[in-house]
C-alpha cells in the first residue's frame, strides 16, 4: 500500500499562497467530473497517503487524504470491514480526501447513512495555513463544534483535508441481489413497503424497466427474506460497485448527466422519455439529456445538479455560506471557482 507524509510540503504551499495572496485549487486524483479548477496553483494531496491507524476491534480507521480509496477499501475488506456509505470511485481512481471533500455516498446511503455520518475526525489546513484537528477517533465526541462533518461535502472551500478518521462497519455476512421487471412507478410503490419494516434491504437500483434490490446481512435473515419474494430472480453478476462508480452501461456515453435528489416519498417519474437510473428508494436519480438543457423534474424540494458534460446554473452565495467560508479562509485562497 502506498504511504508517505507530504504534509510539510502541503502546508508550505498554503503558507506561500497565504503570504503572496494567491489562490490554490486542491485536488486528489481529479476523478470527479465538473470540478475542473482554474486557480493559480494546485495543491495535490495524492502523495500524502497511507493508513495512520487501524485497529479492527475499534471499528475505526485513520487515513491520510491521498490514500487511494480503492486501496483503503481492499485493506478494510481483508479484515471484513467497510466504510458503509461506500463513496464512489470513478474511473478506478479517487482519494480518501476527495471522497470527504465531495461527501458523496454510494447506493447504500438510505440504510447505512451518508459519508458525513461516519466521519469521526479530520486534520485540515485552513486558509491561515494552520494545521488543525477536529473530532477524533472515537464514536461519541461532542467537544467543540462538529467541524469534521462540516468539512465533509465542502468541496475544498474550507481548506485542505490532510487526513480523516471513519467509523467502520463489519461487512455483511452475505449479500444477494434480486432482479425483476418493473416500471418506475411500480418499483417506487414496491420499495415504499420496505421502509416501514426491518428488512435486510441495503440497496435499490432501477433502470431500463428493471428493478434490482440488494439484501445483505446475516445469512439466515437474507435467505428467509429473499425466498419470500415473488416474481424475482437472483442475479449474482450484478455489481453494486458498478452502480456506485458509474461503470454500468447506462453511464457509458457522453450525454449530459444530471444528478437529482428528491424528498423521501418522491421519485423521478420519467415523463419526457429521458434516460434515467434511480437509487435510494427512488430518491436519487441520474438523468441523461440529449442537450445541455437541464431535465424538467417535478416534485417539492428537488435539487438538480449538473454532474457530467453539462454546466451547472450558477448558485447564489448566501450570507452565512460566505461568512463560514471566510471563517476558515479569510483571504479566499481555496478553490475560488467552487461555490457550495
Amino acid at each position: 500500500m502506498s504511504s508517505g507524509d507530504d504534509s510539510e510540503q502541503i502546508v508550505a504551499a498554503v503558507e506561500e499562497a497565504y503570504r503572496e495572496d494567491r489562490c490554490i485549487a486542491i485536488m486528489g486524483h481529479g476523478s470527479k467530473p465538473n470540478t475542473t479548477a482554474t486557480g493559480d496553483a494546485f495543491v495535490c494531496t495524492a502523495d500524502h497517503s497511507g493508513i495512520l491507524e487501524y485497529r479492527p476491534s475499534e471499528l475505526v480507521v485513520s487515513v491520510r487524504a491521498g490514500t487511494p480509496l480503492k486501496e483503503l477499501n481492499d485493506e478494510l475488506a481483508r479484515n471484513g470491514q467497510m466504510i458503509a456509505p461506500d463513496p464512489p470511485i470513478f474511473n478506478q481512481r479517487g482519494t480518501v480526501g476527495g471522497a470527504v471533500a465531495s461527501g458523496l455516498s454510494g447506493p447504500g446511503r438510505p440504510w447505512y447513512g451518508s459519508l458525513r455520518d461516519c466521519v469521526l475526525g479530520v486534520e485540515v489546513i485552513n486558509g491561515l495555513a494552520q494545521r488543525l484537528n477536529f473530532g477524533g477517533r472515537v464514536i461519541k465526541n461532542v467537544a467543540g463544534f462538529d467541524v469534521s462533518r462540516l468539512y465533509t461535502g465542502s468541496w475544498g472551500t474550507f481548506g485542505v483535508i490532510l487526513s480523516a478518521s471513519f467509523k467502520l462497519l463489519p461487512m455483511p455476512e452475505v449479500s444477494f441481489t434480486v432482479e425483476e421487471e418493473c416500471s418506475d412507478i411500480d418499483a417506487f410503490q414496491k420499495l415504499a413497503d420496505h421502509r416501514r419494516e426491518r428488512t435486510t434491504l441495503t440497496g435499490t437500483c432501477h433502470f431500463q424497466g428493471r428493478l434490482f434490490r440488494r439484501f445483505a446481512g446475516a445469512e439466515s435473515a437474507v435467505r428467509s427474506e429473499t425466498d419470500a419474494l415473488e416474481n424475482c430472480e437472483l442475479n449474482d453478476t450484478f455489481s453494486w460497485a458498478d452502480v456506485r462508480d458509474h461503470e454500468l452501461s447506462f453511464f457509458q456515453d457522453d450525454m449530459p448527466l444530471w444528478r437529482a435528489t428528491f424528498d423521501r416519498g418522491e421519485f423521478f417519474e420519467n415523463v419526457d422519455d429521458l434516460s434515467s437510473l434511480s437509487e435510494w428508494y427512488g430518491s436519487l436519480a441520474w438523468i441523461k439529456t440529449p442537450t445541455e438543457t437541464p431535465p424538467s423534474v417535478r416534485g417539492t424540494n428537488i435539487q438538480v445538479s449538473a454532474f457530467r458534460n453539462a454546466v451547472a446554473t450558477k448558485r447564489s452565495v448566501t450570507k452565512y455560506a460566505s461568512r463560514l467560508r471566510k471563517a476558515f479562509d479569510p483571504k479566499g485562497i481555496f478553490n475560488p471557482h467552487i461555490v457550495v
Binding site: D146, L150, Y320, L324, V340
Partner: peptide, 19 residues
C-alpha cells in the same frame, strides 16, 4: 436539511447539532 437524503449546500446541520 429536509426529507431528502443529501443536500448540495454546506452541512449546516452538522454544525448546529451539538452547538
Amino acid at each position: 436539511g429536509g426529507k431528502s437524503y443529501d443536500n448540495a449546500s454546506y452541512d449546516y446541520m452538522a454544525l448546529f447539532v451539538g452547538s
